[in-house]
């Protein structure tokens, strides 16, 4: 219990300070090009590493996870809104769970 609450505090404080420090303390632009590029690419790297391979375990069942992933990749590729992609992936996974056992 205490461990969990302390863990939540670590998460919250880390996240807050990351957001707060630049807004409060830095008033000039970063000049170092390598650092700028690194900061620019980090979100894409993080989200990709978080998604792959975890997305294939996301529904606790490989075939339906693959169905959801395929739908999400196609819809995301065409730039559909986040919420549409997210819910369509779930819908595809759900349909796969219902329909695949019948085949």
């Amino acid at each position: 219990m205490t461990r969990i609450l302390l863990s939540i505090a670590v998460m919250a404080l880390t996240t807050y300070f990351i957001r707060m420090i630049p807004l409060v303390f830095i008033r000039r632009k970063i000049e170092n090009q390598f650092v700028k590029n690194l900061l620019y690419y980090i979100p894409y790297a993080v989200l990709s590493a978080m998604t792959i391979p975890s997305i294939f375990y996301a529904t606790n069942d490989l075939p339906s996870s693959i169905a959801g992933t395929v739908v999400a990749v196609i819809m995301a590729f065409f730039g559909l809104p986040l919420i549409v992609v997210a819910l369509s992936a779930s819908a595809a996974a759900y349909l796969a769970m219902l329909l695949l056992p019948l085949i």
Partner: peptide, 13 residues
């Protein structure tokens, strides 16, 4: 279980 994939779908989007 199916809703569990929604977040990852958002990350891809």
């Amino acid at each position: 279980n199916a809703l569990g994939i929604a977040l990852y779908g958002m990350f891809l989007a």
